[in-house]
Amino acid sequence: MKVTLKVWRQKDAQSPGRFVTYVTPELNPNMSFLEMLDVVNEDLIRRGEEPIAFDHDCREGICGTCSLVINGKPHGPHRGVTTCQTYLRSFKDGDTIVVEPFRARAFPVIRDLIVDRSALDRIMWAGGFISVRTGSAPEANSLPVPKDVAERAMDAAQCIGCGACVAACKNASAMLFVAAKISHLGLLPQGQPERWRRARAMIEQMDREGFGACTVTGSCEAVCPKGISLEFIARMNRDYAVALLKGDSPVRAAAAL
């Protein structure tokens, strides 16, 4: 099969970008979307053109590095998968596919389809940690965690930080990501000491990074490759309200570093 790609090309954050159309070489329908881009790039290199820059790492759907907005939806047409797990058999021979970077002010384009997602890292630095003594691992049963609580924490911890929630949201809001991280730690006993300060510090960092706010459209949940629930945003809001009313300074969370 062959497809026509309409790809966003941009030299760097300062340069203006534009769409360039490529007709791919012959492809195998069982190739992943990223393998298809590899084939296109080999062809471009052979012709002496600049290859298309795109993010990728594990290629098995667990690292959160691959991105891309494919025909207007982050990570391609399916639910619950990343771009690396999207296969060409999901498209028809001769299709035109529009490929764009995640678009948000907080995610400046580095080159072509690669965006800088370190805003999410800075939110994690603001409070996405617990303070424990390092050293030998504690005895597992010394801190009992009910099974249902552990499972809910794991539901939140599934977030791979890819940023698809930001890319899909009409407001480019990162609240699903932040809510998943706050809930993942806040549900477990180890996360309790910083629970309120964490909520405040991470939300305030999120605002500083220039993400939008939540209007509860549910786009983020619908595109999340890990199916993180909107419920965690409600939980985050609740924790933030308690944090404000308790009056703990968010600065102390950073000082714990």
């Binding site: 948000a104 009409k170 549910g218």
Partner: peptide
Amino acid sequence: ENRAARPVQYWGRPAPYGASFASRTM
């Protein structure tokens, strides 16, 4: 602020995936 958070729009301005009409037009 929400508008400023996405200065460059997606091609063809697709309707946000999975969002109800009422939620997009508040």
